[in-house]
Nucleic acid binder design. Structure first.
Ligand code: FES
Ligand code: FES
Lengths: 141, 141
DNA sequence: TATAAACCCGACTAAAATAGTCAAGTATCA
DNA sequence: TGATACTTGACTATTTTAGTCGGGTTTATA
């Protein structure tokens, strides 16, 4: 059960952006350098973030990205959703009445995993970008 | 971020075992049939569970496995630990002072992921096998 | 005492997912 | 007009997962 780089990078990059976009757009090259993330990979990620309107792009020289909303209004849920980082604990299709074992009822652990999924998603629902950068600047990291 | 089959199967199989081991050991063949899990794969999983003393084996005809402890005393944490299903959210080595970006300080999201890890582990720490089968027999699944 | 049921063990492999890379563009500013 | 930076889609290498396979050993029971 692990977090993928895509999800981790998306949050890292946005946290970086939230900190530096006060005046000008921030280029991916800068983020790449500061956070140590491959530029090409960042481009893929930001393409998704833009489509979900989490960031806006500014093309041309001195271009880059800026947040579309206030940091406070960007929840981790939104970010993960944008980059398709899903929390998946059950094996069956949720809508279906069938179980993961192919039988006609849900398996004995189904409800457990469903609870787990809610538990995790709750965390993402509660945290937003502002929380994240606040915590960090307090600790001077 | 998803749960692997290994972890899911381990819990499924033990839940099955907890329900049926009242008198006699339960064979993996039975579990395999009831839960729809590959027999060979179950053997790998039970080998680990046995080494961590979650189950005991009974060899020979009519053999199988029984729980080593009461269902109540087997937490999900113990099960996941036994089969090496780890919750991994940070990318860096925790002990090291270095960050995941190769720099000398932890990255801006490190604390967040650490919190997340604790949040998830807390769930596994709270649930035990007995809870699991109770819930299910109540609902008559 | 032969047989079959079941555990035991290690090596191997196919498939899927992840984490990128690469190439060829377009927009904009100085 | 050059440099910077976003845009897009395809491609690929690596890693992880989820098994499979082939050989054991132990033990109840017919
Ligand atoms: S996880 Fe949904 S039925 Fe098993
Ligand atoms: S996850 Fe630990 S430093 Fe980035």
């Amino acid at each position: 059960m692990k977090l993928t780089s895509k999800g981790r990078y998306a949050v890292m990059a946005l946290a970086d952006l939230a900190r530096f976009d006060n005046l000008n757009p921030v280029s991916l090259r800068d983020i790449s350098l500061r956070q140590g993330i491959s530029l090409d990979y960042l481009e893929q990620i930001f393409s998704k973030l833009r489509k979900k309107e989490i960031v806006q792009s500014v093309r041309g020289t001195q271009g880059g990205y800026i947040l579309s909303k206030k940091a406070k209004d960007i929840k981790l849920t939104n970010i993960f959703d944008a980059v398709d980082e899903k929390v998946k604990t059950v094996q069956c299709k949720k809508e279906s009445k069938k179980g993961c074992n192919g039988k006609s009822t849900k398996c004995i652990t189904h409800n457990l995993w469903d609870e787990l999924e809610n538990h995790i998603n709750h965390f993402f629902e509660e945290k937003n970008l502002e929380d994240l950068i606040k915590e960090n600047t307090e600790r001077r990291i």
